[in-house]
């Protein structure tokens, strides 16, 4: 089945109040072209919950543009390049609700959803302050050993957007590097959008993501810029530093309008 769509068509699949998941990791293989098109579409969606293993460049754009009400990530920053400026500012000003996560809480939450159960047990978090800021996360008693365990709740996702190196028209895809949580996201998302460096008629396999659950495939060459898409291109570090400088000078909106050269 041919699932190819234009970027403008695909961004309409995100609706107000959705949990929007972004594939890739921090500054690697992020769906930046999609996020930029989402922000600049007529009537961009509001009140979104951002779900990402790590928040990075693309997530910071969404927060800066005011589309995100709450964020669930285990890390939100720009790695070696420093703090994510719009995220840091929004949290300081109390404009962004945080659902505190760790690697295990996201990983277990996705596994619970995939398994069709309400939670997955783990040893993580016991004794730390994480449970204090996540009163919804319950501690349970292992019925076999009596050990106290954390019951991480299942995580739902309305729409996931994953940038890939290669895709075919029916949505089978090769990631290129950094599997992160993309296969799991592709299995829990109700709608799944791929943006791809290249779109072919039919990938021979082996593949990293099956096309079965894919809603739309978008041809987006350099669609991860300025994050990397291994092995096609590395991180554009200068562009990320320029972004940080613009944000620090209070020029976020201006940056989107004038500095966006892909």
């Amino acid at each position: 089945m041919d699932k190819t769509k234009s970027l403008d068509e695909a961004v309409l699949l995100v609706q107000d109040g959705d949990t929007l998941a972004l594939g890739g990791m921090t500054i690697y293989r992020r769906p930046v072209a999609f996020v930029h098109a989402l922000i600049t579409r007529d009537n961009p969606p509001q009140d979104l919950t951002l779900l990402a293993f790590t928040g990075g460049f693309a997530s910071d754009l969404l927060v800066g543009a005011g589309l995100i009400r709450r964020s669930r990530t285990c890390y939100f920053g720009l790695e070696t390049f420093g703090l994510a400026p719009m995220f840091t500012q929004a949290v300081r000003e109390g404009r962004l609700e945080i659902i505190e996560e760790s690697e295990a809480s996201i990983a277990c939450g996705l596994r619970a959803t995939m398994a069709g159960v309400g939670f997955m047990p783990s040893r993580a978090w016991q004794g730390t302050d994480m449970l204090r800021v996540r009163p919804d996360v319950m501690t349970i008693c292992d019925p076999y050993s009596d050990e106290r365990l954390t019951a991480f709740p299942a995580i739902d996702c309305d729409v996931a957007v994953i940038h890939v190196l290669r895709a075919d028209r029916s949505g089978n895809a090769v990631l290129g590097g950094n599997p992160t949580i993309d296969l799991e996201l592709s299995m829990v998302a109700k709608r799944l959008i791929l943006t791809a460096e290249t779109v072919e008629d039919e990938l021979p396999g082996p593949i990293d993501l099956p096309g079965l659950a894919v809603t739309a495939v978008v041809h987006a060459p350099r669609g991860a810029w300025p994050t990397s898409c291994y092995p096609a291109y590395p991180i554009d570090g200068e562009a990320i530093l320029d972004y940080i400088s613009a944000c620090n000078a209070g020029q976020f909106s201006n940056y989107l309008l004038t500095s966006w050269i892909q």
Binding site: Y75, T88, V91, R92, G94, E100, S102, G127
Partner: peptide, 27 residues
């Protein structure tokens, strides 16, 4: 690795977050 100063809701400085630290340091 979560926040410094102020309160959790409105911190003086929000750090990137805990990654896998509260997962692995407990065992």
């Amino acid at each position: 690795n979560v926040y410094i100063g102020g309160s959790y809701e409105t911190p003086r400085l929000r750090l990137p977050g805990s990654g896998g630290i509260p997962d692995v340091t407990v065992f």
